[in-house]
Amino acid sequence: MSGAATQLPGAVAGPVIRAEGLTKTFGAFTAVDAISFEVAAGEIFGFLGANGAGKTTAMRMLCGLLTPSGGVASVAGFDVGREPEAIKRRIGYMSQKFSLYDDLTVRENIRFYGGVYGLRTTEIRAKTEALLGRLGLAHERDALVGSLPLGWKQKLAFSVALLHDPAVVFLDEPTGGVDPITRRQFWDLLYEAAARGVTVFITTHYLDEAEYCDRVSIMVDGRMAALDTPAGLKQQFGAADMNEVFLQLARGAKNTE
């Protein structure tokens, strides 16, 4: 999948995400404990872990939203601690709560985010049309986002996160609470984006979705306890599916707590 990466304006040679000893503490509590890993361009990287394992915290550091307490990390060639602003322009981020404005229309949301990402008006207009067409939302352009079904909101939020052609998109539980059909439609969008060379960094608690990732890491109490392809992990843990792999690792965490 990495072959398409060179088409992207934001693309860099080598890994798109690189973390080395990345750490975050809150007072005496260590939420992210010296994690090290690399993610290649165009990869779908599943970032799994139990509740409170430190996924959101780590992701917010990689997005330049939270300053690391220790270690280093770079995203699209920029350092997360020293160049957070440069990173924000080169990534898309969908938080655990959606980031669209319910009281703005579909078109207004797109225009707003286009502005935030520094796109020109003509560019925004062209991208808006393309995006509405692709999502089948052309008739809803003037509908308030708050009135859309969750599944549509979520697809729109994803497309808006990609508006400025970022090298990487960070998705924090994008399919949480989403019904089986809509979840699968969302994954089609992810596959399409990855095929265009966008790197997808995603957390989920649906373990069937872990199977759809190129590689999966599993965090346990702030540490990265495992990192491999789904097939590799299943083999390593002698497990039939990713659910079993996860249960084995996350159960271990509870015992040491």
Partner: peptide, 13 residues
């Protein structure tokens, strides 16, 4: 109402 949305697989069990 959707009590396990966002809850990990171990905790859901």
């Amino acid at each position: 109402d959707e009590p396990t949305t966002g809850v990990d697989a171990v905790s859901r069990q």
